[in-house]
Nucleic acid binder design. Structure first.
Lengths: 238, 238
DNA sequence: CGGTCCGTTGACTCTAATCAACCTGGGTGG
DNA sequence: CCACCCAGGTTGATTAGAGTCAACGGACCG
């Protein structure tokens, strides 16, 4: 009874995987789950290490990263609140998980989590659907990463981030200019898009000079001309 | 009873998802499944269309393709015998499925297949594990596609295909030169690797001239120096 | 005030795309 | 049977776009 308190104030209770469970069923997750706060730049799992935990992301943004033989990092995915973190049924971690912002997780040891998964069909089904969606996303990203110009990649990324920002804390009138903070530094944007820092920077100032976005300072971005961004995405013929 | 015949001579019976089912359980799949042969270049599902079917691939090689706004195609994945084809729980097809070679499928209408999935936990679990693995593969490919040089991409692709060929019909002494047929034309290789036909061609002749591979004719390739290919993959600093 | 980190800008280089021509083998029809 | 054709593949010349190297600017912090 008291154990259920951990979920009582959960900000993502109905959006995360747990949303599939009844209050009674939640007890089994409560028994194994623990809230955990991590600071920006903290890494909770390193690629290649033993695969210990799974989690639900409660707040903040995480990155999934791979480090190439050459030593530079590529970000293969971003995780947002209510997203599932980790890979069940694997012995090793395949991609490092690092916080882009301070974040809060609901962490489960992998083995007992897999057990719970086996006990709760709706949760396993929900996970399957999420993983299928993630696979589709990853494949779609493959296309834009390999075929798009630098301009298309940056424009597309900004649109994605804008949609994500609008979905949560909206600071703008519909249709009007939208302002939000990027959770990523320039170097991280480059690692997501497969570009260099310099190219990202040049593209951003290009968009600013064209009056399509504004850069009020820090990591803030204002979308002034959404349509123009869309045009740049489509215009991905090199 | 007679219905089970469809599986009796199945070449991938124990490797495909159905491997998780007992003979008795197979009956429910048999009831809805049908063998289907398709010719090279035939497309069984178009991206954007209504999502009608799932399948197991029995023989041949399929491609998963996306067509960009600009009209050119990108191949986001290849499917081999025993692989699962299609995406349950989605209303639309996300990537077109086309045969690279003549192929044979065991096709299930999507809705009843989802029903069977719900009735057989081991099968759903197996599918989940496969999709998780496919997600990892897709993300790993994202990295090599965005960060590797043309030489690294082609070398890596040849190694992949060689491993795949060795796993099936092996035509070579272990350690010695391995010869196999690529299931893809140059243009399709380019669509997989995010390069142009010309660049793929140049890289291939470069490898040939360096004595690393031989091109006996047609779509055949002989791997003469496996190590040299590995070196080119690692050497992906541009 | 000096330091560091992050981002921007500039000059130059180099890889792969583009445009174009040519080769090759397999199939067709006269 | 041969001439032709055509798709797929190769090669060459040129170009464009992003990477690289390098310098500089500003914000934050001790």
């Amino acid at each position: 009874m008291m154990q259920i308190d951990i979920c009582a104030d959960c900000a993502v209770r109905d959006q995360a995987l747990c949303g599939s469970l009844t209050d009674a069923e939640l007890a089994s997750l409560n028994r194994i789950g623990r809230r955990h706060r991590i600071a920006r730049d903290e890494t909770i799992a390193w690629a290649g290490d033993e695969n210990i935990v799974c989690a639900n992301l409660l707040s903040g943004v995480l990155k999934l990263g791979a480090t190439t033989a050459g030593g530079d990092e590529h970000i293969v995915g971003l995780l947002y609140p209510a997203d599932f973190v980790g890979r069940p049924f694997a012995e090793q971690v395949d991609f490092s998980v690092t916080a882009l912002t301070d974040a809060e997780l609901c962490v489960f040891p992998r083995a007992p989590f897999e057990q719970v998964l086996g006990d709760h069909r709706r949760m396993e089904r929900l996970l399957l659907e999420r993983v299928l969606a993630a696979l589709g996303d990853a494949r779609a990203r493959m296309v834009s990463l390999t075929r798009g110009s630098a301009a298309a990649k940056v424009a597309g990324f900004l649109l994605d981030m804008a949609d994500r920002a609008k979905a949560t804390g909206c600071r703008a009138a519909p249709g009007g200019p939208l302002t939000f903070d990027l959770p990523l530094a320039r170097g991280e944007m480059a690692a997501v898009l497969g570009l260099t820092i310099e190219t990202v920077s040049r593209q951003m100032t290009g968009l600013k000079r064209a009056g399509i976005i504004a850069l009020p300072g820090g990591r803030a971005v204002t979308i002034l001309d959404r349509r123009a961004l869309h045009v740049r995405v489509e215009d991905q013929a090199r």
